[in-house]
Simulated scan of single mutants.
Amino acid sequence: MRKRKRCLLLAAVCLLCIGGCAGKDVQEPEGGFIIGVVTKSRNSEYWMSVNAGMEKAAKEMNVKTVILSPDTETDKKIQKKMIRDLLKMKVDALAVSPIDSNDNQDYYLQAQELEIPVYSYDTPIADVEVPYIGIDNEKVGYELAKVLAEEMGHKGNIAIIAGSREQTSHEKRIAGFEKYMEQEPDMHIEVEKSGYSNLRVSEQEMAEIQSNYPDLDGIMTTSAVTALGLAEATKGSGIAIASVDDQEDAIRAVEEGRITVLGAQSGYDIGYETVKYIVNDKKGVKQDREKILVTQILTRENVEDYQNLKK
């Protein structure tokens, strides 16, 4: 059976970046220090930004990356197969953003046997100890809650519509949010729903939620893609929305008042800093086990300044 190439995620000079679906062969790169990367999906602006940051760092630091991506953040088995494919290639390092933070021991032990160091980025791995590059998700959840409470006048009812609770990034954002809300006696979390990683909430789904909880004043969601769907579904309702991720369509929604507060987690910076961290590790540079990146909390009042700084 002839080999079939995986579909390219992004192309760059001096960079091998392969993405695609399970069941296809991976072409083995030639020479140089090679970082195998597995993302959680490839169908959002956020993950394209992560890949772009990795490309930039790899080019600057004269290394190669092989990037594999499941179609969606629910493709846990496919992600595991991609990890095994990279280990078969005997890459020099492995960076994973896990779909399930608590199911990583099998490939971690295999990587140890092959003397391939493992790193987590964007989302921490919970069941084994590896370096982590990303934001402080619990702190971001706490800060989002604080600003949302101010915007809502410290009173009202809230729904939490989150991504997969199997991912510590979503779990910790919720934990931080709930921790702050303990000090708000006139604010109440009416309902929690999960499983919306990289999925837009449809108008029908939101209508059902509003039918069951007609007195909602605010929504906290852990993914900007989900927040954009919520903003569309709740248009004109006056419901305040808090979310996370730094992507242009979400930032525009903040500018237009469709998203009330946004934790700007830069996918580009996470991608860039992940490659930089791994290269420094290879060189023997002393580093903390966690590389925590800054997150800006954006509202309509400061989003223009943030955009100007990015230019």
Rank of each mutant, 00 (worst) to 15 (best):
65 T>C: 06
91 V>G: 08
132 Y>W: 01
55 E>T: 01
81 K>L: 09
71 D>K: 11
31 G>R: 14
110 Q>Y: 09
112 Q>C: 13
123 T>E: 06
61 M>A: 11
70 P>E: 02
93 A>M: 06
73 E>Y: 03
29 P>C: 08
78 I>Y: 11
46 Y>Q: 12
57 A>Y: 01
59 K>D: 14
58 A>F: 14
63 V>P: 06
125 I>L: 11
25 D>W: 12
110 Q>W: 09
92 D>F: 03
70 P>I: 00
76 K>T: 15
70 P>C: 02
125 I>Q: 04
26 V>W: 14
42 R>E: 12
59 K>R: 15
93 A>P: 07
110 Q>P: 04
116 I>Y: 07
114 L>P: 02
115 E>F: 08
62 N>L: 09
52 A>L: 14
68 L>I: 01
67 I>H: 10
35 I>E: 10
118 V>Y: 05
60 E>C: 02
70 P>L: 07
93 A>V: 01
104 N>K: 13
38 V>F: 07
101 S>H: 08
107 Y>C: 10
101 S>W: 06
107 Y>A: 05
81 K>Q: 00
32 G>R: 10
73 E>W: 11
53 G>S: 15
92 D>G: 00
55 E>L: 07
122 D>V: 05
120 S>D: 13
101 S>N: 07
39 T>Q: 13
60 E>S: 08
36 G>E: 05
115 E>Q: 12
45 E>A: 12
88 K>E: 05
103 D>G: 06
102 N>I: 00
90 K>G: 00
112 Q>W: 09
119 Y>R: 07
46 Y>W: 14
47 W>M: 13
130 V>G: 00
28 E>H: 06
83 I>A: 03
28 E>Q: 08
33 F>C: 14
42 R>V: 10
97 S>K: 00
111 A>D: 14
85 D>G: 03
60 E>R: 06
96 V>N: 01
106 D>T: 07
108 Y>I: 00
91 V>M: 11
67 I>A: 06
130 V>H: 05
119 Y>I: 00
41 S>K: 11
97 S>N: 12
30 E>L: 13
120 S>K: 13
54 M>P: 09
80 K>V: 00
33 F>Y: 15
100 D>I: 13
123 T>R: 13
126 A>I: 08
56 K>Q: 15
79 Q>E: 09
56 K>I: 14
